[in-house]
Amino acid sequence: MTVTIYHNPACGTSRNTLELIRHAGIEPTVIEYLKTPPNKEELAKMIAASGLSVREAIREKGTPYEELGLADPALSDDQLLEAMIATPILINRPLVVTDMGTRLCRPSEAVLDILAPDAFTSAFVKEDGEAVLDAEGKRIV
Rank of each mutant, 00 (worst) to 15 (best):
M1C: 05
M1L: 13
T4Y: 03
H7G: 02
N8V: 07
N8M: 07
A10D: 14
G12I: 07
G12A: 14
R15H: 05
R15M: 09
R15D: 06
N16D: 14
E19V: 00
L20R: 04
L20Y: 08
H23Q: 12
A24F: 06
A24L: 07
A24E: 03
G25H: 12
E27H: 08
P28T: 11
T29C: 05
V30M: 10
V30N: 10
E32F: 01
E32K: 13
E32H: 14
Y33S: 09
L34K: 14
K35G: 11
K35T: 11
T36D: 14
P38R: 03
P38C: 10
N39K: 11
K40E: 13
E41H: 10
L43Y: 04
L43A: 08
A44N: 12
K45E: 15
M46L: 15
I47P: 01
A48Y: 03
A49Y: 03
S50M: 06
S50D: 06
S50L: 04
G51L: 08
G51R: 08
L52P: 01
L52M: 15
S53R: 12
V54K: 06
R55L: 12
A57I: 04
A57Y: 04
I58S: 00
I58K: 00
R59W: 10
R59T: 06
E60A: 15
E60P: 00
K61H: 13
T63C: 06
P64M: 09
P64E: 06
Y65R: 07
L68R: 05
A71E: 14
D72S: 11
P73Y: 11
P73Q: 12
A74M: 06
L75Y: 03
L75H: 07
S76H: 05
S76N: 08
D77P: 05
D77Q: 08
D77F: 05
D78N: 13
D78M: 00
D78L: 00
L81N: 01
L81S: 03
L81Y: 02
E82N: 13
A83S: 13
M84V: 06
I85K: 02
A86Y: 01
T87C: 04
T87M: 00
P88N: 09
P88M: 09
I89V: 15
I89D: 01
N92K: 14
R93D: 07
P94E: 07
L95H: 12
V96C: 10
V97D: 09
V97T: 12
V97R: 11
G101C: 11
T102L: 10
S108W: 04
S108T: 09
E109P: 01
V111A: 04
L112F: 11
I114R: 08
I114C: 07
L115R: 02
A116F: 00
A116V: 10
A116D: 15
D118I: 02
D118M: 05
T121M: 02
T121Q: 14
S122L: 00
S122Q: 15
V125I: 15
K126S: 09
E127C: 00
E130T: 15
V132Y: 02
V132C: 05
L133V: 07
A135R: 13
E136K: 15
G137T: 09
K138T: 13
K138L: 13
V141K: 15
